[in-house]
């Protein structure tokens, strides 16, 4: 009795206090909104300026005072898309998309297979191998890139897509294995037991049960693979020096070198175009993206 009285009393005090504070709280909420919006605009301004500039002529970019173009022109896009040395950005986009597609297929297949073994099967040296997998997550790739380059060179794979696509089929990106292991562990064992009763072996369980149920983790894998592969510059620069194999990232860099600093307009236009696929993925799959980012940090 005594304690409940005390609780009621403090509750009453709280109510009085909140009445007084309400206007103060409201003001602080509005202020927070203003701060967040202001900082957000500052942060996005460079990107917005880039997009706006891509529709301006060069004079307007550097001398104009308005954020918006005086008149919207598409010359920069037409000129930029023509690319360099007879290869248009269509070629670069095709190459980037091909590498991304292969990387996505490779990662989904190979990482899900490894994750299935680690999360649902029992085998010798499981703990040791899992620990090794986690350690490879932390390794800087520079310790392997030099021998890999030498090896791919001996195989005569330089200036082919193989050094960029084949490793994905060998589950080299441990982050995705980890992500899928986390997810597959949450699938109830009863489902698997039921499937076993029906005479399903591990291969059918993987294919018919675990894989479909892991779809959210697979989508997250696809999206991150896409973003990372699209943004990857180091290995594309390393392995693709032939211009007809250039990706968007490498092509864009070559484009600047050949155009010089004078044609910022078409450079901005092509930069904008190069970011559209990323932005589209972000808009449509934001939920999976956020889940992927937080999976490592919060659940892990």
């Amino acid at each position: 009795m005594e304690t409940s009285k005390a609780v009621i009393q403090t509750n009453n005090i709280d109510i009085v206090k909140t009445e007084v504070k309400k206007s103060k709280v409201k003001l602080s909420i509005i202020l927070t909104h203003i701060i967040i919006i202001a900082v957000g605009i500052i942060m996005l301004y460079p990107l917005l300026w880039m997009v706006s500039s891509s529709f301006k002529d060069n004079l307007d970019i550097f001398k104009g005072t308005s954020f918006f173009p005086k008149e919207i022109i598409f010359d920069n896009y037409i000129k930029g898309w023509n690319g360099i040395s007879g290869y248009t950005f269509a070629t670069f986009f095709k190459n980037s998309l091909f590498i991304c597609t292969m990387a996505i297929i490779g990662n989904v297949i190979s990482c899900s297979m490894a994750a299935y073994a680690f999360s649902r099967l029992d085998f010798a040296f499981k703990k040791v191998l899992f620990a090794i997998m986690l350690i490879t997550l932390m390794l800087p790739f520079h310790v392997t890139v030099i021998p890999q380059y030498i090896m791919f060179n001996k195989l005569e794979w330089i200036n082919t897509f193989l050094p960029l696509t084949l490793p994905k089929f060998l589950a080299t990106e441990g982050f995705f294995i980890f992500l899928m292991v986390q997810f597959m562990r949450t699938i109830p064992l009863e489902l698997e037991e039921a499937a076993k009763m029906d005479g399903c072996g591990p291969i059918r369980i993987y294919w018919k049960l675990i894989l479909p149920l892991s779809l959210p983790a697979l989508i997250t894998t696809m999206i991150f693979t896409f973003i990372w592969t699209w943004n990857d510059f180091f290995s594309q620069l390393l392995y693709l020096s032939d211009i007809k194999l250039h990706t968007v990232a490498v092509g864009l860099r070559m484009f600047v070198d050949s155009m010089g600093e004078s044609s910022w307009g078409s450079l901005f236009a092509m930069s904008t175009v190069s970011l559209i696929p990323l932005f589209a993925v972000f808009i449509f799959f934001q939920k999976y993206l956020i889940e992927g980012i937080t999976a490592g940090g919060v659940k892990g």
Partner: peptide
């Protein structure tokens, strides 16, 4: 909105910008 720079930040396009 605040995530967008992280999405684009590693790209060649943003480095050029």
């Amino acid at each position: 909105v605040y995530y967008v720079p992280s999405l684009f930040g590693g790209s060649v396009a943003v480095a050029l910008l």
